[in-house]
């Protein structure tokens, strides 16, 4: 049977890996190509690159990073951040990425998901969802622009919409938990899982290896993503997988 995936995420700005804590206060944690090989050797199942460059130059650098990474990496990787058009998707996929992840652009124009899925296939189109609990909604609200802009979307409605439009996977980030290091948002993860039929990647809040076994034993998440705890070697992919095996979670 299929295994649960552990996915290190590399936030890349102007060609360098950085990680924001609660989306502010970036620190520099290394070279993306080098880091990706390191994670591959450690047994990472997949990688995600999020391009947080603000400039046009930074985006062009990202294409070079993708091309270089694709030349050395023998596991799949997804690229997100700043992908606004079918052309952007083509550029990144042609450079060697396996999937693209859409966020703000998909909320602005949901047709982008359908167009991408029709052209490249659903398996290439990940929708990244940033969600934050909202008292008024009594559920989670979707935010765009790196968590700065609230939208009208409630999380399960949006999740169903992106799947209906052909998104093949959901990368679900809890803004409440992101950077807090006290565990994945289990209730958000399970809520979205129950709403859709495609794989869901839980993201935001991983602080110790036990958080991974919890998200897999208490929700039906297919994968779990983390950044800083891997980059700063607070734990390793190897250790997390060893722990999961001991806990009876199927991993590669």
């Amino acid at each position: 049977m299929i295994t649960k995936r552990i996915i290190p995420c590399l936030d890349v700005k102007e060609g360098r890996v950085v990680k924001g804590v609660q989306f502010v206060g970036l620190r520099d944690a290394g070279d993306p190509v080098e880091l990706s090989s390191f994670y591959d050797e450690q047994g990472a199942d997949e990688l995600v690159f999020l391009d947080i460059s603000a400039s046009h130059e930074g985006r062009k650098t990202m294409v070079d990073v993708v091309r270089e990474t694709a030349g050395t990496l023998a596991i799949p990787f997804t690229v997100g951040g700043g992908i606004n058009t079918l052309d952007d998707m083509r550029t990144i996929l042609r450079a060697g990425a396996d999937k693209v992840s859409l966020n703000t652009a998909a909320v602005k124009r949901p047709e982008l998901i359908s167009e991408g899925a029709d052209y490249f296939g659903s398996q290439c189109i990940v929708t990244a969802i940033d969600a934050k609990f909202d008292e008024e909604l009594d559920s989670w609200r979707i935010y765009t622009h790196g968590g700065r802009t609230p939208t009208e979307w409630e999380v399960t409605e949006w999740a169903r919409e992106v799947v209906r439009r052909g998104s093949g996977e959901i990368l679900l980030t809890s803004m409440d938990q992101d950077g807090a290091k006290d565990g994945f948002d289990l209730s958000l993860t399970e809520t979205v899982n129950n709403a859709v039929s495609v794989p869901v990647i839980a993201s935001g809040g991983a602080g110790v290896k036990e958080h991974f076994s919890r998200v897999f034993s208490e929700t039906n998440a297919d994968a779990a993503l983390a950044a800083s705890i891997f980059h700063y070697k607070e734990t390793s992919v190897e250790e997390v997988k060893k722990h999961l095996r001991e806990e009876g979670v199927r991993v590669r």
């Binding site: 049977m1 299929i2 295994t3 649960k4 995936r5 199942d45 659903s122 398996q123 093949g168 996977e169 039929s197 495609v198 794989p199 297919d222 994968a223 590669r252």
Partner: peptide, 19 residues
Amino acid sequence: PGVTEDGTAYKVPHMGWNK
């Protein structure tokens, strides 16, 4: 089909590492 004979739903696509 996305659902087993006994009615259990499962994820499609089959995405990830399998043995």
